[in-house]
């Protein structure tokens, strides 16, 4: 298996997020099928090196996914409050 950094080497900068996203989505889909699209979108806003670290480290990925889920739930809760008011 090649190191994750080799994913990015031949890719133009505009395609790097796309390639990282495809791999990240596959991993997150196994954890949270219903939220994979949103969680992947959130994590892709991070630095490419952080995303690479997630692809290499399941523990790091899970911690960042948990963080993203918490942020997403907080955001959605605020949206509900906003709609009620």
């Amino acid at each position: 298996e090649s190191p994750a950094t080799s994913i990015l080497a031949p890719a133009p900068s505009g395609d790097q997020k796309q390639m990282l996203g495809e791999r990240l989505f596959c991993l997150i889909q196994t954890m949270l099928p219903s939220l994979a699209a949103k969680i992947t979108g959130m994590l892709l806003e991070l630095d490419n090196l952080d995303v690479l670290h997630m692809l290499e480290s399941p523990e790091f990925l899970r911690s960042k996914v948990d963080e993203a889920v918490a942020v997403l739930q907080d955001h959605e809760a605020k949206q509900v409050v906003h709609q009620v008011m």
Partner: peptide, 26 residues
């Protein structure tokens, strides 16, 4: 804007070109 915050976060779908925040806040 309020409109874009409702659509946050941008969703990533395999095979669809990723535009990030630009996709929800043009």
């Amino acid at each position: 804007s309020n409109g874009s915050s409702i659509n946050w976060p941008p969703e990533f779908h395999p095979g669809v070109p990723w535009k990030g925040l630009q996709s929800i806040d043009p």
